[in-house]
Simulated assay, not measured.
Amino acid sequence: TLEDCPSWMPNVGYNRHTKLYVMVYWSSRYGFQNSLVPLAISASPLGPFVNVQPLKMQGGMVISDTTSLFVDDDNTAYVRYNTRDAPLKHVVEKLSPDWMTSTGQFSIIFEKQDYPWYDGGGMFKRKGIYYTMLSFDCCFCQWGSDARTFASTDILGNWTFVGQLNYCADGRAPPDHVTDMSINPCSINDPFGTNFTVPAQQFNVATLPISCEETLYMYYGERFRSSTDGLKGHDFQAWIPIEFMDDDSLLPMTFYANFTVNIQ
């Protein structure tokens, strides 16, 4: 069972060595307060998940508002998180073989000195290259957020900015900075003006093998304030295919009305 306090962003991976399903999630018990990340385990993907000793991250003193789990091809697991202590950092940190503790090995993906901070997002691996996203913190906004994408050939090495995946709907790039998280970067003076192309705040990337030779990478994000009854738990999500050009560079996302996935 999850804790009896606000929690979000559950990420579950299967450790094929321990044969346990491991959940990393964000909890207000630790977030904004210390460097702990809650951890829960189950023998089944359906649960129940039971909390165990939380992970103590080494890449920052105070975890901010996003945490996620990434599992590499060799079963090595990493936690991707952002920090609140200065400078504001986005970090990926390696876990022990049983995924129950940190190894203390980490890499800083991006850091900045000032607010508003950037939220973390999905991480995936394609053709030996690791990718991760980060975005403006829009604090449950309806206009969505961007998807600044970084890449590295070594997950614990140096990360390089490679492009913006989510432009404003009018084709403009969002500014590098806004003065407050309540400001719409695509329409500075009108929160109900132009939205991002995909009006969602990114949460993660789903890696979906659809054939023996092809893997589909799906951005997914929360479309805050999209529910008809106003309940946050009823908000819609956006699921968008991440597309690449022939030279393997990333294409900006398109907010498709619908698309078909062919699974072989």
Results as ranks from 00 to 15, higher is better:
Gly104Cys: 08
Tyr220Leu: 07
Thr207Val: 06
Gly163Val: 08
Leu39Asp: 05
Gly60Asp: 07
Asp248Thr: 11
Gln105Glu: 12
Ser27Phe: 04
Asp246Met: 11
Cys138Ala: 14
Leu216Gly: 03
Gln113Gly: 15
Thr103Gln: 09
Glu3Ile: 13
Leu36Thr: 04
Ser107Ile: 01
Asp98Asn: 05
Gly122Ser: 06
Asp248Met: 06
Asp180Glu: 09
Tyr220Cys: 09
Phe32Thr: 10
Pro38Ala: 00
Pro174Ala: 08
Gln33Leu: 14
Pro6Asp: 06
Leu208Ile: 13
Gly120Arg: 03
Phe150His: 05
Ile109Ser: 05
Pro54Phe: 02
Ser28Trp: 12
Pro191Asn: 14
Ala43Trp: 04
Thr228Asn: 10
Glu243Cys: 08
His90Cys: 06
Pro199Phe: 00
Pro10Ile: 01
Ser68Phe: 11
Val37Lys: 00
Tyr167Glu: 02
Ser102Leu: 07
Ser227Arg: 01
Ala238His: 06
Gly233Trp: 12
Lys94Ser: 12
Pro10Asp: 03
Thr215Asn: 05
Thr67Met: 01
Lys112Arg: 14
Thr83His: 02
Met61Glu: 14
Leu39Cys: 01
Asn189Phe: 03
Ser42Lys: 13
Ala151Met: 08
Lys94Ile: 10
Met57Cys: 10
Gln58Met: 13
Ser27Ile: 04
Trp117Asp: 10
Tyr167Phe: 09
Thr215Ile: 01
Asp154Asn: 06
Thr260Pro: 02
Trp159Leu: 08
Asp235Ala: 06
Lys19Trp: 08
Ile41Tyr: 12
Arg80Pro: 02
Ala173Leu: 09
Asn34Phe: 04
Gly60Ala: 09
Lys125Cys: 13
Arg223Gln: 15
Asn258Thr: 11
Ala86Val: 14
Ile263Gln: 06
Ala147Thr: 09
Thr179Phe: 09
Thr18Met: 12
Tyr256Lys: 03
Pro48Asn: 05
Thr67Ser: 07
Leu2Trp: 04
Asn166Leu: 01
Val12Arg: 02
Gly59Thr: 07
Asn195Thr: 15
Tyr21Cys: 00
Val24Arg: 01
Asp235Val: 00
Gln58Val: 11
Tyr167Gln: 09
Pro174His: 06
Phe161Asp: 10
Asn15Thr: 02
Ile263His: 10
Val261Gly: 06
Glu222Arg: 15
Met253Thr: 08
Gln113Glu: 15
Asp247Leu: 07
Asn11Arg: 12
Asp74Ala: 00
Ile242Arg: 01
Pro48Phe: 00
Thr197Ala: 08
Asn258Gly: 14
Cys212Gly: 15
